[in-house]
Design a binder for these strands. Structure first.
Length: 262
DNA sequence: AGGTATGTTAATTG
DNA sequence: GCAATTAACATACC
């Protein structure tokens, strides 16, 4: 379930489990996921190294290797990390890449759909530039946010989901942010007044920070979040109206027609 | 069996 | 050049 909050949870998980252990080997089950490298290249780059630190930018997770290079992980539409012991335990289903440490433990990159990406880069910044990503959604002040809004011609939903403008927000959290900001998904950005842009900024921060705090687990989200109600027959957690869906920004958007009137 | 899916990119169309 | 839409990618699930 990978948008910014999910990736932040994975980052903390990697921090808590996998740092400072000598890497024995890496097994690439799905070589097509490697973008700028090969299984051999990856093996040479990580062998006998340790993961020393982590970083996140939008939906990209970085693990800094001793020696200076960085391992990059992107999880596509599905995917997660799983750390597990050696011995009898076998790799989780859909493990596409497996890092084995010298203590016998393993870090699995699991991705049922193989839409993710694994790569090596010299720095997180170089990946951000190569992919022309916008600033991370949680590393963006009001002023910068306002400047990004200016000059946008499309709809709010497509704007906040555009990784080249703001990195980290996907379909689910854009719905949540627009719901909390009480904005109709297809509202043109150019129509928003100063107050609405600020409301959107505040909702973005609040939603993302709160979701991280909830471990990106829908069951632990605040009671007034739309997130667990994105399905036909559900009701708005704020006003009780039936929620609706529509196509917007090329995806299925869920919203409350009463709280988010056009 | 067919439709849908938390992402990204390329191609197409306006 | 922009923006919106659609297809493609690879696969699972309902």
């Amino acid at each position: 379930m990978p948008e910014l909050p999910d990736i932040e949870v994975y980052r903390r998980y990697l921090d808590a489990t996998s740092l400072h252990q000598r890497i024995e080997r890496v097994h690439v089950e799905s070589p097509a996921l490697l973008k700028g490298t090969t299984p051999q290249g990856l093996g040479r780059a990580v062998h006998a190294k340790t993961l020393e630190t982590t970083h996140r930018h939008g939906k990209y997770l970085f693990a800094g290797l001793s020696g200076g290079r960085w391992l990059v992980l992107h999880f596509g539409m599905s995917g997660e990390l799983r750390y597990f012991g050696g011995g009898e335990e076998q790799s989780p289903d859909y493990t596409r890449c497996l890092v084995t440490f010298d203590n016998g433990f393993n870090l699995a990159y699991v991705a049922p759909r193989k839409l993710g990406l694994i790569d090596l880069v010299d720095s997180p910044q170089s990946l951000v530039e190569e992919r022309t990503l916008g600033p991370d959604a949680l590393d963006l002040d009001q002023q910068a946010f306002r400047e990004l809004a200016g000059g946008r011609r499309g709809t709010v939903k497509s704007w906040i989901m555009d990784q080249h403008s703001i990195a980290g927000i996907g379909n689910i959290y854009s719905d949540e942010i627009l719901f909390q900001a009480k904005l109709y998904p297809r509202r043109p950005v150019a129509d928003l007044d100063e107050a609405a842009v600020m409301r959107l900024y505040d909702a973005m921060r609040r939603v993302l920070e709160r979701a991280v705090k909830a471990g990106a687990d829908p069951r632990r989200m605040p009671a007034d979040f739309l997130l667990p109600h994105r399905e036909a027959g559900s009701r708005c957690p704020k006003c009780g109206s039936p929620v609706k869906s529509m196509q917007a920004a090329g995806r299925t958007a869920w919203y409350c027609p009463r709280c988010q009137a056009a």
